[in-house]
Design a protein around this nucleic acid. Structure first.
Lengths: 323, 323
DNA sequence: CTGTTAGCGCCTTCAG
DNA sequence: CTGAAGGCGCTAACAG
């Protein structure tokens, strides 16, 4: 491996000068610069990043902590995070927490020891207490302490939008179906937006919610739907629940969307070339990823950032609402 | 940050001794070891990984180069690669090549400069020429030069299996439908296995193949199926094609699986908790990931490895074959 | 067994 | 403007 020393030797200058040329830092005369550049080219010098990182005590890499990459929402998110970050010269280290708080803590300790520059995390645990050292952190869909920036889709607005789309399509009796996690998260706002909009428009509605961990959720939903067989418009907390609802409805002999219209939330796509089938409120995953990455870089570079980044959602028409 | 020096000072020993204790390397007397351990505990010493990496000229990290993480096959693979590797103390750096050879080369250069320990790559470009420095490399589904180890599922056996399952279910007239990539890859063997097995059992069959890049592939498949309306068993090169075939068949008024049975290949699952709907030959993604990771570690540690790792596939019964 | 020493490759003062 | 020198924190070789 060719080092800075060899370049200096060949160019007949000191190593400091080579460093200055390479990093374009400090004043160097035209002549010496040319000499050094020539030597660099001839020797095909590439700086040893690991030495530089050591010296600078940073690593030009950020960690992405997510429950599992094996899920279309997270993998789309990860895809765009990596795209943005690699363009900006950062490496991204993948960390699957499997929703295990201990694993998250282990990762964080490891990352600190490795002088990682920052973290983007999607988690439902209170990891912020372990991220001291004011290690830059951007959180997704989860509000920690005041000084941690977070990025989220407009869950409240999504709920409003779902209500509007359902009402626009002449639904008379609405329902929200979802679950409630033990930790506070952004999906509560979906319901809130939905509820407030429906109230505003004075449409009848039901709320069906169960606490996690879920047990026989499908059974419960089924009996709920049986009991209220006049419901003709449903907003599901997410696409997964929407799909479950759809299959329950078909089991109950209801036609979707003729008898009942259903709107989900998330709009996950298996891959960039696959289609969204059900009507849904799609999260702006790409934008979320982009903003999270850029915000993190800003924090790393010590430039101030908007601490609460809320991105607009969109209604995507699928086969479960009437056109 | 507390350094090895401070620990040495506190324990009243030399820094070499602290290093020996921490790494459990070299002989240290019981007494001094205790002293050092006490100091470590008291100071809450954590070694600076980045300094260690610098000294060792390695990084305890490997790179995963895939076309895109936003695809269930790759994301499942990545999930298991990361699980295995993180258990073994390696970090994994995510690299989305987007199928762009130039991007792959850029990543590789960056990785070399960063003294990455090894690479696991899924690519259809000839990147091996850029991976000099005998940088450890494991390739998936793609055979490079002799000295690069690769991991694949038993594509040939999968083809045989598909044929057997179709014949077992009384199909009389079979077909293989697929595409041919410009670069040689493992999926050719799916067809080969299928064809040889069908021949062996003397069943009638057709092969429908088009060269990539595909144009109006669905139209072509449709007219092929129209022309041979007596085909009652189809093996598709992958699940995506299988799904396309299924929708074409339904358009043609054929019932799947009553009139025509269809088997795909891959068995991708969107996430760990989702279901496989169509009948398919499932790749052992988890095993592939595990073996790729372990093989890479072996190469890194200079222990010899089986250069060709072929893992068995399984038939998964979905709704597109008759039970 | 253990303390000291010599770097790893680079960046950054600090004199000149 | 530029060369020399001092570390960053750690490991490994060496001399006791």
């Amino acid at each position: 491996m060719v080092t800075i020393k060899e370049v200096a030797l060949r160019a007949g200058v000191g190593i400091g000068t080579v460093s200055r040329v390479f990093n374009n830092k400090g004043a160097v005369s035209k002549v010496t610069r040319a000499k050094v550049e020539k030597a660099i080219k001839e020797l095909n010098y590439e700086p040893n990043e690991i030495a530089r990182n050591f010296k600078m005590q940073q690593s030009q890499s950020i960690a992405l902590i997510i429950p599992t990459i094996w899920h279309p929402f997270y993998s789309e998110f990860a895809f765009y995070v990596e795209s943005t970050l690699s363009e900006q010269g950062f490496k991204v280290i993948l960390c699957n927490s499997k929703n295990d708080p201990q694993k998250e803590i282990n990762y964080i300790n490891m990352l600190i020891k490795n002088k990682i520059d920052g973290i983007i995390a999607i988690t439902y645990n209170d990891i912020d207490q372990y991220v001291f050292n004011n290690l830059p952190l951007v959180s997704i869909d989860r509000h920690f302490t005041e000084d941690i920036v977070y990025v989220t889709s407009d869950n409240y607005g999504g709920g409003v939008l779902a209500a509007q789309e359902l009402i626009k399509r002449n639904c008379q009796k609405l329902a929200y179906i979802g679950s409630v996690s033990t930790v506070k998260n952004e999906s509560l706002n979906r319901r809130k937006g939905f509820e407030e909009e429906v109230n505003k428009q004075s449409v009848e509605y039901f709320i069906f919610e169960e606490n996690e961990p879920l047990k026989d959720f499908d059974k419960a939903v089924e009996s709920f739907l049986k009991k209220h067989s006049d419901i003709d418009g449903i907003f599901a907390m997410n696409d997964k629940i929407a799909k479950m609802i759809i299959s329950i409805l078909s089991k109950l002999g209801k036609n979707v969307p003729l008898d009942v219209q259903v709107i989900g939330y998330d709009g996950v796509k298996m891959s960039s070339d696959s289609e969204i089938m059900i009507s849904t409120i799609r999260q702006p995953v790409k934008d979320m990823a982009y903003h999270a990455a850029m915000a993190l870089i800003s924090i790393i570079r010590n430039v101030s950032v908007e601490p609460r980044i809320v991105l607009p959602v969109k209604f995507i028409e699928g086969y479960t609402t009437q056109k």
